[in-house]
């Protein structure tokens, strides 16, 4: 069974009486351990797809199953708990809280899952070590460079040991050199067995992932390319997270 199963999912907006199909009858499986990119021009519906996959939004039609659980009818409260425990987000603009230190930012998801202070501390430090940022734990986000901020955001996404990580244009706000370092970090995480979904408009970035899903006008045009650079393992078979 796949980690995520989307079955004929549609998302329809009504703007001034006009019907806009942001997603039109999309079906998609994501397996455990996969490294996927969702690619498409702006307005294609890729953000909407990520929001629905990431439990930030519910579909108008269709069913979505995450980790064996149907979530299209879940309440906002259940969605919040699912986002908290099973999903990690990395954003284009890092979205760290400016008033908190890097460590506190990484601790944030654990605060909402009610983990004790000491354990929170240890796990946050562990996650920061995993992204080589442990020495900046006490700094404010504004005192870090863009790449460091994005690594802190990745640590925050990792800290609750989620089943799947969504990265929305993670390199979009970084120079190409730092962007490559961030992509390398994602590749490393993927090798460690994480399930990662990269959302981008840039085919070059999408090229690093073994499986690419192209979206146009709310519909999927899937392409799988195993021969692309940076891949040293087959895509589909599940590798269990440590």
């Amino acid at each position: 069974m796949a980690l995520v199963e989307l079955r004929s999912v549609s998302k329809i907006y009504h703007l001034g009486g006009e019907e806009i199909r942001a997603l039109d009858d999309v079906s998609l499986d994501i397996h455990e351990g996969e490294f996927i990119s969702i690619i498409g021009p702006s307005g294609s519906g890729k953000s909407t797809l990520m929001h629905i996959l990431g439990c930030l939004d519910s579909p108008t039609h269709g069913t979505i199953q995450l980790d064996g659980r149907m979530i299209q009818d879940a309440s906002t409260r259940e969605l919040a708990a699912i986002r908290n425990r099973k999903i990690g987000f990395v954003f284009q603009f890092f979205n760290l809280l400016p008033k908190l230190s890097v460590l506190q930012n990484v601790e944030l998801p654990m605060i909402y899952s009610g983990i004790a202070t000491r354990q929170r501390h240890q796990r946050a430090l562990g996650a920061l070590q995993a992204v080589d940022l442990a020495n900046r734990a006490k700094h404010r986000p504004s005192q870090l460079s863009g790449g460091q901020q994005q690594r802190a955001a990745i640590a925050r996404a990792l800290v609750n040991d989620p089943r799947i990580i969504f990265a929305d244009e993670p390199t979009g706000n970084l120079d190409s050199h730092t962007g490559e370092a961030i992509l390398a970090l994602f590749r490393r995480l993927s090798r460690e067995g994480r399930t990662i979904v990269l959302v981008t408009h840039d085919p070059e970035i999408a090229a690093v992932t073994p499986r690419r899903i192209e979206i146009r006008d709310g519909k999927i045009a899937e392409k799988v390319d195993l021969t692309l650079a940076g891949l040293d393992r087959p895509p589909a078979p599940a590798v269990l997270a440590p």
Binding site: R77, A80, A81, R83, N84, F89, N95, L97, P109, Y112
Partner: peptide, 16 residues
């Protein structure tokens, strides 16, 4: 607003 959005994305429920 943005901060609240971030908190919600990482799992803050409405009651929280």
């Amino acid at each position: 607003i943005r901060e609240i959005g971030i908190c919600k994305a990482v799992g803050a429920s409405a009651p929280a």
